[in-house]
Design a binder for these strands. Structure first.
Lengths: 206, 206, 206, 206
DNA sequence: CATGAATGAGTGTTCATTCAT
DNA sequence: TATGAATGAACACTCATTCAT
């Protein structure tokens, strides 16, 4: 649908437009809390203090806003994950880095993470959102490569399937965006340490 | 039970109506795959081979269907969890039982689990759905009680906060409904064992 | 756009629905007088005494209405033209029949003719309306075949290019829908005779 | 002329502004091909390489552009028609001149002719466009006067109603703007001759 | 039990136009 | 002269729901 449109460039399309960034921030917040489909363009416009039609001066569609929010989030995440793995001396160090940074992302980009976490089902059905699955696959292979190498080196246990560990870990980590409170007493780094503690040696006392 | 109730219900609303059950099954499936808000009553009616208006002969609203699906799921879950804990000799046995049954539920009631997992955010804003939060709280206290007792008995580590362990574990377990394939080669009980392995002694080789 | 939709069959889609026919009649009238793009679905609904959304119980889109109106008109026209040519003994008889019937169509189906006359430019750009061009081409070849045969038999002049004669004649005839008044004193058959007089032997006195 | 006028016009509205003429040219082209209503001011602005709001520096409204285009076309046409009739020795010469010049106008001012041909229905409903009907009426009386005089002098046949001949002829001639290709092999003067041939002595071989 | 016609509020989007800079 | 942000009214279309038959 949107891919066949003429895509007449919007005036404010320059990446540097401050108003655009503001509007995206508002949209991200609303998409995250109410859900993308449940957020109307009028909601966004109201929050921004303009009329809904005026949004279309900046963005060509509601979908475009979602796309832009997600793309910049996923691009940044992927880049950071690659740096972390590249800079790690051993699998365990790499894995810990990935987990710690994930909690940082949850802390700093709660809206985008929520969005990704909650709308991924919807997203897979939309064209123009192939990049999300693509990014997800790349993230997955980064984590799994770390897990597999750790198993090879003997750092990680042999009887645990890397792809399953990845899924359990990923869901445990990223789901915390639903209950994590950035202003609460439990800070994101403390959260990361508890998570790593559990991950490393498990729940049972020895 | 149904005929002696107060507010005269719709004709087919006797708990024993087979048509009702069929329709609920269809609705649950659609709600789970497309999301509640993204599923129209026409979608449900189409699938059932009737017109959308005719659904209102069986249910008073779309929300009612959701409520009914979730209530019966959560009631059953709560009951089962209580039995498991009551029948367990030790905290660890209780916890393992809870985890194992969770995977069984994911296997047997995938639609309802998905629904609960995906729509909980929406649900908290709806009146008439207080029972969901209520059930969630009761489930949470069951799990946390087990975790706390295990810490007291020395079975579980002291440096792990029960409420955090609960959240990590809950999310890891229940999120698997999103990727678990009931017809795949990885069976739900094998999944449970991998999960428990990781939970018990962690990822690191000793 | 519309061709990729699911095309869930509308309840009233049965060709026999009287309400549908009424609505199409209203739409045709409005499309013809105001133009397709300038006619809103609210205009149609207002005229029908219902709300605009209710139209979608009968038709899946505004475009669908246009399509249905035009398709039935063009199908009938084509069929009639074929009968006329098939039943004619000579090119001149065929041509006269075609012209006479055209004026009858203008009289009896003024809305559809206007629509075709005025919206053909728009139509050529819409997908799903290929059938209009297809029908137009078939009509054109019927008329041109008659003109060419007349030239071959010596009934029609040799120095007139059939394809040009066709265009001049077609436009002279069909454009009259714009000024012809079905309730006026000049009847459609008288109009046809004047047109044929001019066509046959021209304006100049001998 | 422009500086002494009453209502202070927009800056660039001096009749001599080159930018204005360019913009009108662009607008005429777009109005002709897409239709007036289907052409947005953004379309025009895009083509001109400016923003849509900037058009309002030159013209007070979209309608104004249409008006200006049509007015200059119709004024010129009327003037030319008057000259032709005034300079003709006989009705037939006058008529031939009118037809020939019409094809020239189609060739040289295709956009304006298309516009007039296609939007006349819309135009009659707009206030501020009375001048179009007024001009049309004056053109009509010129042509009909010629036809009537020809009938009086015995040059044209008696059994053909001038007002009908006018309409048939007008539509045949002007409609050709829809299919005439200025760059094609069939030149506009050849077209005029074929048209006159048919008009003069008709289609039938003698 | 189901149909078919309708409601009414809402949804994303378009577009001519305005105006401070 | 032009920009860029915004307006405000309108538009095609959706959807949960109602109800007479």
């Amino acid at each position: 649908m949107s891919s066949t449109k003429k895509a007449r460039k919007r005036p404010g399309s320059g990446a540097g437009s401050a108003r655009r960034a503001e509007l995206l921030e508002i949209a991200a917040q609303l998409f995250a809390t109410r859900g993308y489909a449940q957020t109307t363009v009028r909601d966004i416009a109201d929050e921004a203090g303009i009329l809904s039609g005026s949004l279309y001066h900046h963005f060509s569609s509601k979908e475009t806003m979602l796309e832009e929010i997600l793309r910049s989030f996923m691009d940044g995440l992927l880049e950071r994950f690659q740096e972390i793995v590249a800079g790690a001396a051993a699998p365990r160090e790499a894995l810990d880095g990935l987990v710690r940074y994930s909690f940082t992302a949850i802390h700093e980009q709660q809206a985008a993470v929520s969005l990704y976490q909650n709308e991924i089902a919807l997203l897979s059905r939309l064209p123009d959102f192939g990049f999300v699955e693509e990014s997800s696959r790349r993230v997955e292979s980064i984590w799994i490569a770390v897990l597999e190498e750790g198993r090879r080196t003997g750092d990680f246990r042999e009887d645990l399937e890397p792809s399953l560990v990845y899924r359990f870990l990923r869901d445990a980590v990223w789901s915390s965006v639903r209950w994590y409170n950035p202003e609460g007493t439990m800070r994101h780094d403390a959260l990361a340490e508890q998570c790593l503690l559990l991950l490393h040696t498990g729940l049972l006392a020895d």
